[in-house]
Design a protein around this nucleic acid. Structure first.
Lengths: 236, 236
DNA sequence: CGATTTGTTGACTAATATCAAACTGTGTGG
DNA sequence: CCACACAGTTTGATATTAGTCAACAAATCG
């Protein structure tokens, strides 16, 4: 049920009436299984559908002229990482699976019809894109002002927070199938340096990242090192 | 005419009928003169109005726990830098004037009424916030993957492009009243390093930044150094 | 099981930060 | 009109962080 996922997600941030929920439930969608590390929406595409991550993880990224890739955001189940394609003609970035994923696709015209009939849903979707933007702002702060350890700590603290909101993180660990090289691409660091920072966190008893899981040993310290403050996630 | 400015701006990215434009014209607003370097919307505020920059420049910024300030975006006349406050309860950043500025404030309830009556306007505003987010994504790429000279070049190329869209930049120069220390805060660099990069650009005949103006000597080279590609600005 | 990807280590280098001092230009009050 | 103050810029010296390269080890996959 892709729309069940959407409903659950939208309800984290917005009031969705049962009526609205029923309207969402009849949205037609197509589900695809996408293997890991597959670009499933391309920069420069003219999207005609929006996707909902049903299981697994995806990320947004851009590749520069000289071949460096920057990861812009991570998306667990429930996220709609190309909702902005509804109003912008072209994708300005790629969407790639981190792990094997199930992804639902909904045609724009169906979403547009729904928004027209039910402005509340339109507002809820708009809000999702605004929270997205707020997360981008926070990433700018991380890259612009924080040291390598603080960047990693902040990223992990953010993921933990977002994942537990949708029930995907236990208190002290969560699944996150990422390589150090990919972490490096998200943090604007080299993979060697990421490796060293992770090691220092292991030694210091802050966290461990291994075999597709993040294990949190000392959340308070993590939050402190990363300067993490959840305000920017705008949860109700 | 704050709303005249809004109309002109919205028409860059969206179709606004004359009917819609008339409806925008009757939006009540309050105009304030704000001196330079004044925080006029604060992080953590619960905004009840949106602002439109009528003249001068403003910027968004966040300050970290250890006192470093990161500038997130620059806003020339025509911009509505707290449009997201319409749907998000709290500001997650500050809004500050760079120069003396005239700023118009419009109560949320008026905008909300207008959106309800005229969904096209709602869509145009949503689109504005999406372009905003696209610019944030690009800034993440700059901070994460580019060298100091490339970051500065990209910022200048972006500003030139955005300013000429609203008629605020000549071919080879534009007003931009910023100090090197502030540039440093936007680029995630130290002010000393920004100074050295600017000097190297002067010597190389790429650009000059002095006395509140940016003078472009070789735009092609500038665009190249910064890896600037306007796609992400999503102009129609 | 071999092949490939991912993680780890060390040595070395490059980019950028930091600190402190001096310099420049502009505006202000006497 | 000068002296001074102030903000912004410039310079040099030095420190630090993070990047690069190359080799190797460990894990994972078919």
């Amino acid at each position: 049920m892709p729309t069940e996922m959407m409903i659950r997600r939208l309800r984290i941030n917005s009031d969705i009436s049962d009526d609205d929920a029923s309207a969402l439930r009849v949205l037609p969608s197509l589900i695809r299984e996408v293997p890991e590390e597959t670009v499933f929406v391309h920069e420069n595409d003219r999207p005609t559908q929006c996707c909902v991550i049903m299981s697994g993880f995806a990320f947004r990224s851009k590749t520069t002229e000289d071949g460096k890739r920057q990861i812009l955001s991570f998306h667990p189940a429930g996220d709609m990482p190309d909702l902005h394609g509804l109003l912008l003609e072209r994708m300005d970035h790629d969407l790639t699976t981190l792990s094997d994923a199930r992804i639902a696709f909904v045609e724009h015209r169906h979403i547009n019809k729904l928004i027209e009939a039910r402005p509340t849903i339109g507002r809820a979707l708009w809000r999702e894109t605004l929270v997205d933007a707020a997360i981008f702002r926070q990433w700018i702060v991380n890259l612009g002002t924080r040291s390598a350890p603080a960047r990693l700590a902040h990223l992990v603290a953010e993921l933990r927070h977002r994942l537990s909101s949708v029930g995907l993180a236990a208190d002290d660990e969560f699944e996150f199938p990422i390589t150090q090289a990919e972490l490096a691409e998200a943090l604007g660091l080299s993979s060697v340096h990421v490796n060293r920072v992770i090691q220092s966190f292991r030694v210091a008893g802050v966290l461990d990242i291994a075999r597709n899981r993040v294990r949190l040993k000392d959340i308070e310290r993590l939050v402190n090192i990363g300067g993490f403050n959840e305000l920017y996630l705008h949860e109700q």
